[in-house]
Nucleic acid binder design. Structure first.
Lengths: 339, 339
DNA sequence: CTGAAAGCGCTAACAA
DNA sequence: TTGTTAGCGCTTTCAG
């Protein structure tokens, strides 16, 4: 049988109220009683029933995280950030991934209702706006990497995709590359679009040169980066540099280039986005835009906890985390800048 | 205020029992009543309180997953496997990562007690056995990649680390490499130990040659693979091949070799373990042991659900998932086997 | 300092 | 087919 608070109370010769006081450190209890209770609890291997506590406290101490179906280092870092922050604050993390369309997200949203005190939602699909009416009310929510104005008055937190991509493109230009190709993520993805926009802006400003055939659409996987690059190499004209919208695609590009016997960065430069841990260990080490994935997760939880403490604020907060350019040798900068 | 089952009942002019019957599809309800109830629920945006349901049903529809603090593709694939399987079965996933010692695991274990219907525990630390007495009773548990006999009568599920490492080592031997170095994970890690054991066994059987200085201890990160390989290159004698105990370390090794101007596989062969998605896109493509991470997660959930349905079996099940050798060009096999 | 008792929102007999 | 009611295990007034 399960051991409940009554068992402990009986065993310790006190009432359930006193046991409850001990376990929640609420209200005064004589040292004597406390000891007897703790001893009895230990002996019985008692653990409070969380469902009952949730029911009466109206707090589950759990935070829900809805993530898209994406693999890889970036997402695993976001998860780590969420987990660590939640744990430190004594909260649990209820995750639900693998959502690639609105219906799936809505199903998961429904299933989480009532189980969590707050919600972190990452839905980089540009259709995100359509979720707005179905967002649960009454609990704080923070949207990660979503179009900030699309989901109604909800808090958002994002990586500076535009700024990061623009900085990288400028860097490529600065190093001397004029003719630059871009490997984008799926165009239904908000991050992909923003990075493309940053690329375009910098290129226009800096007088670089691009080409429709040099805008290749991938899906953030190594395979798509590889395929796209092979397509690119079949073109008559070749760019001097390839900017991949994430590191996974950059890895695919590197593979295709290596296979074709094209030397990086001598014959062609390559740059990525995200700066996953292994970027530094690729051959050649990959120049990338550092995206603070771990921090993104941590801050999201921070926001939620904040909202849980403080009275709700009526104006949503939109915050963008800065990115940082990490120059390594894949873009040819090293050749120009001797140590 | 929150809307409860009573509000719906009142609105629809029925009793709470009838509303409950509609929502759980338990017991007969007239079509007329059902419609009125559904309509009222919709209008009120009613959603059953999960805490109350859990309390009375003694089922939370949640499964807890305790994972060690490891990043990278392998773990993110295990997570995906867990999530997908749980979701398909209508269960939630309560994850808690970042546990690198026993105390941390025990804390998390305590916190999950009463919140989950089953538990997946991955604690590859060799000390895993010490957890046994603190494992919660009353709910099914499955241990992932743990020493199978160490944790008492608990179900286990593991990757065939020994067999995989042995097969890879044999392959290296078959291809003609005699003098082989190994990069291990931390020696407190059960997976690392098993892989090392498989390596040793194959080497002994196959007449290969190794050396204490060629057994380098890393920690499964790219950085440790890189550092270890640099140390290796400073030795007077060099091996013909390096077997890294996971792909991340292999990537670090590749980087160190590249930096030192040593060509892979011509001058030195490299092999990894895990076969993460990008292994195929490294330069050169990495020969590795495919470890079914996604499947591992899926099966773990399957086991739990099984135990939840069926009457508990007294004899624990120990299952080992087979690995598969994936030969690419980093080990020099391609040179010997023309297409 | 301690205990009795009233629920939290829901489900499942049992009765009607 | 429907309603009444007794809890699930816990927290929290409110008296004592």
């Amino acid at each position: 049988m399960r051991v409940t608070i009554r068992d402990v109370a009986r065993e310790a010769g006190v009432s359930v109220a006193t046991v409850s006081r001990v376990f929640n450190d609420s209200g005064p209890v004589s040292e004597q009683a406390r000891l007897r209770i703790l001893e009895a609890a230990q002996r019985l291997r008692y653990a409070p029933n969380e469902a009952a506590r949730t029911l009466i406290n109206r707090r589950s101490q759990a935070i829900g995280a809805l993530l898209p179906d994406l693999h890889g280092e970036f997402f695993s870092e976001v998860m780590r950030g969420l987990d660590r922050a939640a744990q430190r604050a004594g909260h649990h993390l209820l995750v639900s991934g693998s959502h690639d369309d609105r219906a799936a997200v809505e199903g998961a949203l429904r299933a989480m209702r009532g189980r969590v005190d707050g919600l972190v939602l990452m839905f980089p699909d540009v259709e995100a706006a359509a979720l707005a009416p179905n967002l649960p009310t009454g609990i704080p929510i923070v949207l990660l990497n979503c179009p900030s104005d699309a989901c109604g008055p909800v808090d958002t937190l994002a990586i500076d995709n535009f700024g990061g991509a623009r900085a990288m493109t400028r860097h490529l230009l600065d190093v001397g590359h004029r003719r630059i190709a871009i490997l984008t993520g799926t165009l239904r993805n908000h991050d992909a679009l923003e990075r493309l926009r940053g690329f375009g802006a910098a290129l226009r400003d800096g007088g670089g040169e691009t080409h429709d055939r040099w805008r290749l659409v991938g899906d953030f996987t190594e395979a798509s980066g590889y395929d796209a690059t092979r397509r690119l190499l079949r073109e008559r004209e070749r760019p001097e540099a390839i900017f991949a919208s994430n590191d996974s695609m950059a890895i695919g590009a590197l593979a295709a280039l290596h296979e074709a016997g094209i030397e990086v960065p001598l014959e062609m430069a390559v740059a990525g986005f995200d700066d996953i841990p292994m970027a530094r260990y690729l051959s050649p080490p990959l120049t990338s835009v550092h995206a603070p994935a771990f921090e993104l997760g941590g801050r999201a939880i921070g926001r939620l906890l904040d909202a849980l403490e403080r009275p709700p604020r009526r104006t949503p907060r939109h915050e963008t985390l800065p990115t940082r350019l990490v120059v390594r040798s894949s873009c040819g900068a090293a050749a120009l800048q001797p140590p």
